[in-house]
Structures are given as structure tokens and as C-alpha cells.
Nucleic acid binder design. Structure first.
Lengths: 168, 168
DNA sequence: TTGTCTGCAAACACTTTGCACTTTT
DNA sequence: AAAAGTGCAAAGTGTTTGCAGACAA
């Protein structure tokens, strides 16, 4: 999946490194810090774009020997990282895509149905709307996800090779 | 999946009935109007809530004999209805959920992670934000999807039986 | 008649699980 | 030593597809 953040959503101050936070999370759960979990967290933290399980697995394979993890372990660890608040999970085109959550500000996405690029943006107004709507419905909003689908500038120009894609 | 529209988003005027529009769509595609497609469209049009393929299949089974369709046919026809602009598809918790699109105004959803209820709402402000963001990124917005996840009032009260659910 | 559609069974992609063995604590 | 984690292979989900017979146009 192609990724582009067209403007930087700078990091937010946090007390712990993601690794430390994960270690803390594992400990409070009585879970162990294994070399696989360490390899996965380190690898994820070294790449700040969106990714899916397959890409992570692939990335680990390119890594110095010893930093491997099997597919099930990758899936298990990703779920733990979501639980720990390090990653957010979203489903795009049938597979789970992860993005960093810990230390990053809330943001949403423009999704180009032509080239599958995800462009991040953030909007305070949107958060306001979210809270207003939730309040109106006596609903406790815990998160939201806005995906604006359409065609990016490049794909609008190169209509020739565009296929019709599902909307999200 | 439980569904509740807490306030009615009235229908919008349209030239054709959904059935007629679908027939038109099929004809322009050189596709045929079979009794299965007719049964599916009629059944869908008779139930204005969100549904998934399984529920539709189940609903068809309860129907007067002869109005049956197999699982593959249901999936195929749902895809055609999305193509025809009659339905919108969204993915929630790993499966596709459909809602009426033709003749209904744009709206978004509150999704209760406790009881999986979908509550509809609409916001003009949101549409404004969408267009502003898209413009800022030289992006042509074709659709958007906002899902606010959290807990509805009832689920907040009955925390006892709540399990931890994925955020959307 | 012609070409599309259907239903069946099998294939699919992605993800999860059972289990024997390994590793962390 | 005890408990949790790992990898493998197998099982799940929800959805899609190949194909032979059925059917709309």
C-alpha cells in the first residue's frame, strides 16, 4: 500500500518510548518479553507508515537473522499492540491495516481509489462535530474513523489506467 | 445486527422506484431480469435497515416458496445493486453490511461496540469539512464514511455483560 | 437459439486456533 | 520448575469462482 503524508503531523510528547510502553503493558498483563515480540515492536517502530500483517512479516524477513517471527505470532503481537494503544487497526479492501497511534495525534484519511494511497489530515472541527453528535445521542464516543474516498490529483490526470474500485 | 434510526431521515424524491432503476441498470449492461434478482431486490426494498448477506439469505428463506436464491447469487446481486447505486456497502467487524443508498440522503453512523447497533445521523457541517479537506489536497471526494465508535447509553449502563470489542 | 444465470462445490484471502515443544521468568 | 510463547499445520470466516445444467431474451 502506497502511503504519503503530505504534511507532517508532528509527534506528540509522550512519557515513554513505544517499546517501554509495550513492555509495561506486557508486564501488567503477566505476559513475557520474548525476542519475537521485541523484534516486531522494534520493526514497527522503525517504520512510521501504514502497513498490514503481510508487509510486517516480509519486513521481518529482511532483517538480521534471529529477528524472525511466524505469521501467527505477528498476528498475535499486532493485536497486543492495538490493545496496548500503540497501534490503530483499520480495515481497507478486506485486510487489516495498522498505523501508529501512540504519540501521534488523531487524524483521518483521504483514500484514493485509484492508487490506494492514504493521505492523512486532521481537523479539529471534525472532533467537535463528533463530540456534538455523540452527546446528542447520549453516546460515549471512544474513537472515530473518517475516510474520504475519491481520486487524488495524479489519478484524475491518468484516468486511462484507472479501474473502477469499491468505495470504502 | 441490531439497527435503530433514532430520527427519521426522510426519503428523498427520486424519479424511479429502486426496482425500476435496477431493471434499467441491468438492461444497459445486457444483464437479465431473473426471478432470483427480482426476489432479492424486492426483499431488500421491503426492509429499510442495514443488513448483511447472511441476513438477506435468511430473509429470503422465510419468503413464499419460489423466491429463493443461493448464497453466490445473493453475493453477486448485492454487488450489482451496489454498482447500480441502490446500496452502499461498508465493512464492520469483518463482514460487509449494506444500507440503502438510492433515494436516501447521505448520512453517517454511530457504532456501539457493545451491542453492535448502528445509529444514523447526518451533518451538513461534516460535508463542508469533507469538501474543504478534499479541496486542500487537490482531491476529488466521491464519498466519505464516518463511523463514530463507542458505547450507547444502554451499553454504558450494562457494563457487566460487556466484552471488549475492536474499534472499527 | 443464444448467451446469461444459477447453484453446487471447491477455491479464496486473511486470520485464528490446537497442540507439542521451546523459552522466559 | 512453572507458566507463557512459539511455530506448524489445520481450521475458521466471509466471500468469490469454475463449471454444467437451467433459463431469459
Amino acid at each position: 500500500m502506497a502511503v504519503a503524508a503530505d504534511f507532517s503531523l508532528g509527534k506528540v510528547d509522550v512519557a515513554l518510548t513505544p517499546q517501554a510502553r509495550f513492555a509495561e503493558f506486557l508486564q501488567t498483563k503477566g505476559k513475557r518479553i520474548t525476542k519475537q515480540r521485541r523484534a516486531i515492536v522494534d520493526h514497527v517502530c522503525g517504520h512510521h507508515e501504514h502497513f498490514d500483517a503481510e508487509q510486517l512479516l516480509e519486513g521481518l524477513r529482511r532483517t538480521p537473522a534471529g529477528a524472525r517471527a511466524s505469521r501467527p505470532t505477528v498476528y498475535r503481537t499486532l493485536a497486543e499492540m492495538v490493545d496496548a494503544g500503540l497501534l490503530r487497526k483499520m480495515v481497507l479492501g478486506g485486510r487489516a491495516v495498522y498505523e501508529h497511534d501512540y504519540g501521534y495525534p488523531q487524524h483521518d484519511h483521504l483514500y484514493c481509489t485509484g492508487c490506494h494511497q492514504l493521505i492523512e489530515f486532521s481537523s479539529d472541527e471534525l472532533t467537535r462535530i463528533r463530540d456534538a453528535v455523540a452527546a446528542r445521542h447520549r453516546f460515549r464516543a471512544e474513537s472515530h474513523r473518517l475516510i474520504i474516498s475519491g481520486l487524488c490529483f495524479d489519478c484524475r490526470s491518468n484516468r486511462s489506467r484507472s479501474r473502477h474500485q469499491d468505495r470504502v
